[in-house]
Amino acid sequence: MKNNRVTISQYWLGMIVCSFYAVIFTDNTASFLTLLLCAAAVAFNLFVERYYSGEMSSMTRVVLIFYFIFVSVLSVVRFNEYMFKSLGYGPYLLITPIMLVFAFFCAVKGLEPVARAGGIVLFFLIAALVYIFVCCFNYTSFTVTAEFSDNFFTLVVLLFPSASYVWFYNNIIPDKNYTKWFYTGLTLGVELWFMCVSAGERGEFPFQRVPEVAKIGVFRGADCMLLELLTVGGLFIFAAVQTALFGNSTRKYSSRIVYLLFVGFISLLCLCFEPLRATLYNNIFAVFVILVFVLTVSFEMLQKSMNKNS
C-alpha cells in the first residue's frame, strides 16, 4: 500500500511547518497564533491523509494553495521588517523560505517528496541544535547562557514537541510499546526543562503568566513552549480517549473529529484570553487561518458524506 511508504517525517513536516509560522508572526499574539497554526497543522494532516487515501477534495487543495500563497506574501512583508536587524533573525532567513517552499510543493508534488526533504532538513536542524546547545551551554550553572540566540532557542523548543506529536500520532496508538512512551515522556521533560531555564533567565514562572506581547525572542519562545506543551499534553489525553472510545485505528473519521473538537476548544480558550488585542495585521491572518481550517474540514466532511451516499 502506498501509505506504508510514507514515513513519520510527513507529520514532522506538517507540524513543524505550521508551528514555525509562529516564529515569524509571534509579535504580540504568540499564543493565539500558535494554537491557530496548530489547528492549521491538523488541517494539513487531514489533507495529507486524504491525499494518500486517494480521496482528496480538489477544493481542499485549492484552499490550501491560496493559504500558502497568502502566508508567503505575509512572510515576505514580515521579512522586510527585519531586513536590517543586526541580530537574531536567523530563523526568518532559514526557516521561512524552507517552509514556504515545502508548503507550496506539498500542493504541487504531493507530500511524499516534501516529507523526504523535511527529513533531510530536520537532520541539519538537529545538527544545528546540537552545535548551538554545546556553544551556549553554561557548564557552571547548567543553564543556557544569555548569548543563546533567541530565535534558535525558539527553534529548539518547537522541534521537540513537533517530534513528539508526530511520533505518537503515528506510533503510540494502539501500540503499548513502553519505549515510545518513554520517548514521549523524555521529550516533554526536556521541553519543561527548557521552559524552566527560560523562566529562570527572566525570573518568572511561565505557568502563571498570561501570554503577553512578546518583544524579545526568549519571551516568545516561552509562549510557544507553553502552547506547544498544551498541544502535546492534549494529544496525550486525546490518544487515551481515542483508544478507549474508538479502538485501534488512527484514521477513523470519528477519531479525527474528536481531535478537531479538542483543538477547536483550545483555540476558543485562547481566544477568550486574548480577544482583540492583536493588531489588524495579525487579525487578518488569524481570521484567514481559521477560515482555511473551517473550510478544509467542511470540504472533507462534505466529501466524506458524498462518498457515503454514492
Partner: peptide, 19 residues
C-alpha cells in the same frame, strides 16, 4: 534575494531531488 533566496532555492532543489 540574499540568504533568503539562497535558502529558498536550496529547498526547491532539495524537493526536486527528493521527488
Amino acid at each position: 534575494l540574499g540568504v533568503w533566496g539562497i535558502v529558498m532555492l536550496s529547498a526547491v532543489v532539495l524537493i526536486f531531488m527528493c521527488s
